[in-house]
Design a protein around this nucleic acid. Structure first.
Lengths: 146, 146
DNA sequence: TATTGTTATACTCTATAACTATA
DNA sequence: TATAGTTATAGAGTATAACAATA
């Protein structure tokens, strides 16, 4: 069976990782993507929806839907930003505790994904992903054109 | 800015890789996913649509749409399989030559994705992805439940 | 003039379920 | 009964375009 291009291998691995995370998050009734949004808001208290979208690489309209969902769940709130055009988004108390539980669950899922590697190999892999991400972010404007 | 969970980092990296591949494939007017299907058929001449779907982790209906597209482009043909219920899918002459061009293009895109790593690091990364994929395939039935 | 949030709409990819024809 | 292909339909996720309020 063909191994295919590296891009394909990477995609299949990511899908595997996502499926594992989705399964682990079932009891919280939340998707991995929505947890990511929650994480970004937690790390950037009071961020605008547009800024959230930038970090997640989705547009304003999509970022708004994420916030709508999280707000509907009582995990985040919209407050008035210094610029009255913008919303400042914050985690609620419930959002903080939910994120804590969910983070533990995701950590386990990540561990399962990397289970076939030694501790050293896994650390190397995580570090290389981090570096590739860091360098890729620089050329993101170029790619956005696509 | 939050680095987020490993799964999130992996997803962002994959999206970056996919966007790059999509951009590079623009002149062929074909998506990375459809090229992957073409690659699988090339490596498995005469494979059924169901088998194609298994390898790509999509169901029969989705695999059929991929074959419809590739057939419409004249890149593959459906022939009668030994089991008359099934189709045997093959690359056409045009499919072979297109795949060759497209493969070169994708190789460049992959190189660009890994450009920030040294040759040794890139080799390590590719190898670790391959191993993670190989081990994950074993537990695929479990994940499909999700 | 540019930007934020919003709304409505559409597109892509995939899944599900039902049907047919074979095994 | 089980499976391959097909078809129609639905869902998730995202994008685009236009609008109001504000900078």
């Amino acid at each position: 069976m063909l191994d295919g291009s590296f891009g394909f291998q990477l995609k299949m691995l990511q899908m595997e990782s996502d499926a594992r995370a989705r399964l682990a998050l079932q009891r919280f009734e939340i998707s991995p993507a929505r947890v990511s949004a929650l994480m970004v808001i937690a790390a950037n208290p009071g961020c605008t929806q547009t800024r959230l979208g930038d970090v997640l690489s989705v547009n304003r309209a999509s970022a708004m839907k994420l916030v709508n969902f999280l707000e509907g769940r009582g995990l985040v709130v919209r407050k008035q930003a210094s610029d009255p055009r913008a919303n400042a988004v914050f985690l609620t108390r419930k959002g903080v505790s939910t994120l804590s539980d969910v983070t533990d669950t995701l950590r386990e899922a990540d561990r399962a994904t990397l289970a076939s590697l030694s501790d050293e190999e896994a650390a190397t892999f995580v570090e290389l992903v981090r570096r590739l991400r860091a360098s890729g972010a620089a050329s993101e404007e170029t790619l956005k054109v696509a």
